[in-house]
Write a protein that binds this DNA or RNA. Structure first.
Lengths: 234, 234
DNA sequence: ACTTTAAATGTACGTTGTACATTTATTTTT
DNA sequence: AAAAATAAATGTACAACGTACATTTAAAGT
């Protein structure tokens, strides 16, 4: 009964529908969030997630991708709906619900100029400022879902560059789970999944010896799923 | 930037916001869904989830509970947001997004008369009729989430009567996971969690010998969580 | 007394998680 | 040229857990 046509006796009122983006990145072993300084009144100068109203002729997901592109310049980014925030008084102005969507981006790929234009800043996840409205709640919920999803789906890889080392991957998981992992067990576990492809290059930024680079092999991942075995890290 | 006040240059258009309820129940070893026959045109007579527009002065969750109460008579029911469906053309009438929420109810508790008034019917999960709009998709997604959630949270218990037998609990999990479980291993596993309280009564509906009734002990469940151990079934 | 039904119980084995210390490759310093 | 410093890479033993599997038991019906 959700469709509106002909529901003559139902209370039928329109409201504003917004979407807000929780943009995660990973850099220097830290999980980060892209936050924006509001340029318009009210709450001008306050920190906020980036968002927009959803247009009448626009799919919800399309609206999320549009917001992301406008603010970071990025397309083809991993994005997923989190949930919808719909307390009647969540926005002190008109009634407005917001569909929160979170994105995982490779920080090195993003358009720095564009981001600066928007008054944006990367904050470490545990040094976030106070955000407007229920945006801190959204981030909190997104972190929880990221934790749950990263365990059984290879979404962590969306946050790393295409080529990455195993210690980098471990640092990412440590940042997501907020606990230390044993390097020997971690390596054994991820390699046992057979979804990493070892390259002949090394990354020397982390140590004198250097660590071998790997890339995620999507075909092998599909094989893993089809074989019935679980992808499960940490 | 989701709030509308003062966003002078943003496109700002209102739309309809509905909520649809995916109502699960469990009876005779089968997982079931409560489906409604539409009483109004268009699509009159078609099967549909039950839903409503969200009112301007109404929280999203409140709208879901209202719909549930109006259609089943039940209050204090487990209910959880699934996700929001927002394709621009999902509803052939006006632009309308729908926040899907799913509920788990004890079939024996619900108000049968009220349900009949609404032209409602319980369908077994794998004998669902064609539903209007994207409602079959919603059910599909809800089933997936139910599977995932039931594994780590004791939401399965919301579908059983307060007192239940271990074979009943096993049948529920078998229905959710759509596979058979070994009775010995299942019993061992659930009892090891220490969240079931054995009663002195038996249920004789299932066999001549009868099976002992248990109830879920919420305090023990909290202890389990705090002790850091995982609730994990099947 | 015998049959029928589903409930209840235990064990052995394989797999996986976990704890833990040393060696290696390379650069930088002396 | 040698030594020091750094993080990467590797293996093993034990505990915990999942899994496969067959028999006995309580009660009702004949």
């Amino acid at each position: 009964m959700s469709e509106n046509l002909g529901d003559l006796y139902q209370v039928k009122e329109k409201m504003y529908v917004a979407t807000d983006c929780i943009i995660f990145g990973f850099q220097n072993g830290k999980l980060k969030l892209l936050v924006f300084k509001r340029k318009v009144s009210p709450l001008e100068g306050e920190w906020s997630l980036i968002g927009s109203f959803v247009r009448l002729d626009e799919d919800l997901e399309v609206a999320g991708k549009r917001v992301l592109k406008e603010s970071t310049g990025l397309e083809n980014v991993y994005m997923q709906q989190l949930r919808t925030y719909g307390k009647k008084d969540r926005d002190p102005g008109y009634r407005c619900i917001s569909v929160a969507q979170y994105a995982l981006i490779r920080i090195n790929e993003y358009d720095e100029e564009l981001v600066e234009e928007h008054g944006a800043k990367w904050f470490e996840i545990d040094q976030l400022p106070l955000l407007i409205l229920d945006h801190n709640q959204m981030v909190h919920d997104a972190l929880l879902q990221l934790k749950q999803n990263a365990r059984y789906r290879p979404i962590g890889f969306e946050l790393l560059p295409e080529k990455f080392t195993i210690p980098q991957l471990q640092a990412l998981y440590e940042a997501i789970y907020r606990r230390e992992l044993d390097p020997r067990n971690f390596r054994k576990k991820v390699l046992s999944l057979n979804v990493l492809e070892k390259l002949d290059e090394k990354d020397r930024s982390g140590s004198k010896r250097g660590a071998f680079l790997y890339k995620f092999n999507n075909d092998n991942y599909r094989d893993l799923l089809e074989s019935g075995y679980n992808f499960e890290i940490a």
